[in-house]
Design a protein around this nucleic acid. Structure first.
Length: 565
RNA sequence: CGGGGUAUAGCUCAGUCUGGUAGAGCGUUGCGUUUGGGACGCAAAAGUCGGGGGUUCGAAUCCCUCUGCCCCGACCA
């Protein structure tokens, strides 16, 4: 590509509404432009990168035996009613009407449509297993779109759905997808981790997320230093402490804490470590309020809490008014000792081994010291309800856990029979009997990968693309071609030769001054830069610099060709 | 959904408090000089000041209202 024939639209100034590096750089490089909240136009430059990612994904999906197809983005209400998701998906589902007032949604995912296709097209076990995939636009009406294409409302996703007669076959394809995903992210040059993920309300047997490691990531993940255990923090189990609860050593005493409400305030005021306090959260249960007790230095894991039988899937904290009505005290002074008998008390494993602890006094302005379980405070049940923290033992018994931030770019999931059952997708088995198919689903956020890669790979000058994602591998920059026609000729000939060898090259023939040209090529992250100049012509060399290196060096034409392979 | 902020030229922003003919930098166009790290000079084009309503002799500026966008919160017991 000759840059004079392309549309490059870089900007010097950092856009005002971009917070994180990838968003800023994508705007500055002119890869995307915002149309409205969560909606982005991909420029010619941006699209080149997006297509690179798409093609790697497509190649590896095909290699893993998946079959590409394409489903509509607009889908009829009736189908979504069959699975109950027309209501259940909530406000994230964008609903629209056509001229006949028929209702549709813009697809946030395609289980319904693919399963409808499968129930019509698949009749026999001989057709299984099969794995359909598409690379298609999705729309999710996010509460708060942010970070550019990282969390956009409209985005490009690869979604695959596999169909099976038995669990064993599902597990095989699941593993094949897991392996394909690992190859994809490796080929794309990303630092990533596959982590165990929560299977959520859908149930199912197994689920892994593929997380690109980046400090700006919205997800927290944990991994062990003594094994290959890795999980989303939502899923990671906090083991019960190895030590058992000491016998009570103190008597319980009420102390005045007139304005101290938070654990930090109370522990500072009383001179007691947060780990020796019990914090009590009152949440709305399925049937009245429920108390959740945690060690003062621990946080509630809402996903774990949502699985408790007493609580709805979505954990909601009780309001100040509800707490006052139930306990006679305001938030900040609630504790397990002396709570009304109607409130179940679910105690985290770590909080359960405390003795002589500090907790709220269930009366405004007071806390209790020297409190003890059983003697002073009743426990309905002990369970794992906290978030794991740095240094916790790994749930598999090997090593300790470390925390990291990640960007979820892929998710593989064994769905089981959920959708096939709801939609009546069956095949005849070898006995001639109808069997509900089992399903797996496997997603990759194509557009998000572009942003995630930049998060991981950039410097002050701009993007540093991995070779597999770069819009072009090589940039040929000609200096003052108008002043010296030999330079223009040499640049053109080098460009032709690289192109003839199948090396994707961009020739910067815009005639800009060197500084502006270099700044652009660095901003848009081209991995290899070759400068053709008067100096070089005189010496018979070219000047080469890799994007990730600080210095350039003189090379001959042959050396350059060898270097670029 | 709640809270906060913001809306002025293509972009980044000043001007608003204290009402009086619309500003800068970057970018764009033309001419000239320049050509190894975002060049310089001269000239030029470009804004219904987010929309609507009100107050006033006069509104970017004050008041009301609507809308867009951004941020924060959904961890406080």
């Amino acid at each position: 590509m000759r840059l004079s024939q392309f549309h490059l639209a870089t900007v010097k100034e950092v856009p005002a509404d971009a917070e994180i590096a990838s968003h800023q750089l994508m705007l500055r490089a002119g890869m995307i432009r915002k149309l409205a909240s969560g909606l982005y136009t991909w420029s010619p430059l941006g699209l080149r990168v997006l297509r690179k990612v798409e093609n790697v994904v497509r190649e590896e999906m095909n290699r893993a035996g998946a079959i590409e197809m394409l489903m509509p983005t607009i889908q009829p209400r009736e189908l979504w009613e069959e699975t109950g998701r027309w209501q259940k998906f909530g406000p994230q589902l964008l609903k629209i009407k056509d001229r006949k007032e028929q209702e549709f949604c813009y697809a946030p995912t395609a289980e319904e449509v693919v399963t409808d296709y499968a129930r019509n097209e698949l009749n026999s076990y001989k057709q299984l297993p099969v794995n359909f995939y598409q690379i298609q636009t999705k729309f999710r009406d996010e509460i708060r779109p942010r970070f550019g294409v990282m969390r956009a409302r409209e985005f490009l996703m690869k979604d695959a759905y596999s169909f099976h007669l038995g669990q064993e076959s599902l597990a095989e394809t699941y593993q094949a997808m897991y392996d394909a995903y690992s190859r994809i992210f490796t080929r794309l040059g990303l630092k990533f981790r596959a982590v165990q993920a929560d299977t959520g309300a859908i149930g199912g047997n197994a689920s892994h997320e593929f997380q690109v490691l980046a400090d700006s990531g919205e997800d927290a993940i944990v991994f062990s230093d003594g094994s290959d255990y890795a999980a989303n923090v939502e899923k990671a189990e906090a083991l019960a402490p190895a030590t058992s609860r000491p016998a009570p050593g103190a008597t319980m005493e009420r102390v005045d804490t007139p304005v101290q409400k938070t654990i930090a305030e109370v522990s500072a005021f009383l001179g007691v470590a947060p780990a020796q306090c019990v914090k009590t959260l009152l949440v709305k249960g399925r049937d009245g309020l429920v108390a959740l007790c945690l060690r003062g230095d621990h946080e509630l894991n809402e996903v774990k809490a949502g699985k408790l039988a007493e609580l709805p899937d979505e954990v909601v904290l009780a309001s100040a008014a509800e707490i006052l009505a139930a306990t006679g005290a305001r938030p900040g002074f609630i504790g397990p000792a002396g709570l009304p008998a109607a409130i179940p008390v679910i105690v985290d494993r770590s909080a359960a081994v405390l003795a002589d602890f500090v907790c709220g006094g269930n009366a405004d302005g007071t806390h209790q010291t020297g409190a003890n379980w059983e003697r002073d405070a009743r426990m309905t049940r002990i369970d794992d309800i906290r978030q794991v923290v740095e240094g916790d033992p790994s749930p598999d018994g090997h090593g300790t856990l470390h925390l990291a931030r990640g960007i979820e770019v892929g998710h593989v999931f064994q769905l089981g029979g959920k959708y096939a059952e709801a939609l009546g997708a069956t095949v005849l088995d070898d006995q001639g009997k109808a069997q509900v198919m089992l399903m797996g689903c496997y997603g990759i956020g194509i557009s998000r990968i572009v942003a995630a890669a930049i998060e991981q790979r950039h410097d002050d000058a701009g993007i540093i693309w991995p070779e597999a994602m770069a819009p072009w591998r090589v940039a040929v920059c000609v200096i003052n071609p108008k002043g010296n026609p030999d330079i223009a000729t040499a640049g053109e000939s080098l460009y032709q030769e690289l192109a003839a060898r199948g090396i994707e090259t961009v020739l910067d023939d815009r005639g800009l001054r060197p500084g502006a040209m270099f700044a652009d090529m660095e901003l848009i992250g081209i991995p290899h830069r070759v400068v053709v100049s008067e100096r070089g012509l005189a010496a018979g060399t070219l000047e080469y610099r890799a994007r990730h290196e600080a210095e350039s060096r003189a090379v001959t034409r042959d050396e350059l060709l060898a270097l670029l392979g």
